[in-house]
Design a protein around this nucleic acid. Structure first.
Length: 226
DNA sequence: AAGCGGATCGTCT
DNA sequence: GACGATCCGCTTG
């Protein structure tokens, strides 16, 4: 328990240094950032346009409590889905049993199963009654890397892209499933899946068309940090 | 380095 | 009954 906390602090520190230093591997001043200083992202944060939320959520931490262990990743790539006006969004067809979370209050996990094989994680945006969401496409591994690799079925924790570098990958690495996590409130500090802000600042944000989407390719709704 | 196809199933037509 | 907000391994260059 004590060991896990230290492990998490170390991992957070490494993650922050990497963000500040960019690609440079030169030594940087160490900075301890205990998890206790990472605050839940409030519901009001999500109660906006998905595009705003998508940009703002980059750099936030997704923390997953898994069998007494904390698995954490820093959000590095997202896509915005706009709801009824967006032909690429699940909500476009109107409210169904599957996409009901999108029409509910903001700050809840929308998890769906895709291609008969993978789960994808979204967070609901906008006030209740209005659909819209942010798809999490990639995170940088921060804590619990060994467990992540085990869940992914790969031997090494070294390759971040192989570990959590895709929507399906990060769900597998964090042990996220539709049955366990669809509809979970991610603003609660006690949730087994939650989003925290540790104050980390992100660099320049790149915007591109969304991946795997045929419609609305003129819209730059995919956002990633370099 | 990049492109192809197979795996696999819930959801809506 | 078709197909998708994907991933992986195998192919080729």
């Amino acid at each position: 328990m004590q060991f896990e906390r230290q492990d998490l602090e170390l991992a957070l520190r490494r993650s922050r240094i990497k963000h500040k230093a960019g690609h440079s591997m030169k030594s940087a001043p160490t900075e301890i950032v205990p998890l206790i200083h990472a605050n839940p992202v409030p519901r009001s944060f999500y109660e906006r346009d998905p595009e705003q939320v998508a940009r703002a959520i980059l750099g936030k931490l997704i923390v997953r409590s898994f069998q007494g262990e904390e698995l954490a990743g820093r959000i590095s790539e997202v896509e915005a889905y706009l709801g009824l006006d967006d032909p690429a969004a699940h909500a476009f067809v109107g409210r169904t049993e599957r996409n009901a979370v999108l029409f509910g209050p903001p700050g809840f996990a929308y998890v769906y199963f895709i291609y008969g094989m993978h789960y994808c994680l979204n967070f609901s945006c906008q006030p209740e009654g209005h659909a819209g969401s942010v798809l999490i496409r990639a995170v940088e591994p921060v804590a619990g890397l060994h467990k992540m690799a085990e869940l992914r079925g790969i031997p090494s924790t070294a390759n971040a892209k192989a570990l959590t570098g895709g929507p399906g990958k990060l769900c597998q690495a964090l042990g996220i499933t539709r049955m366990a996590h669809n509809g979970v409130d991610v603003t609660l500090p006690t949730s087994r899946l939650r989003v925290l802000d540790d104050g980390a600042k992100v660099g320049p944000i790149h915007a591109t068309p969304r991946i795997g989407i045929r419609k609305a390719q003129d819209r730059l709704l995919r956002f990633l940090v370099s």
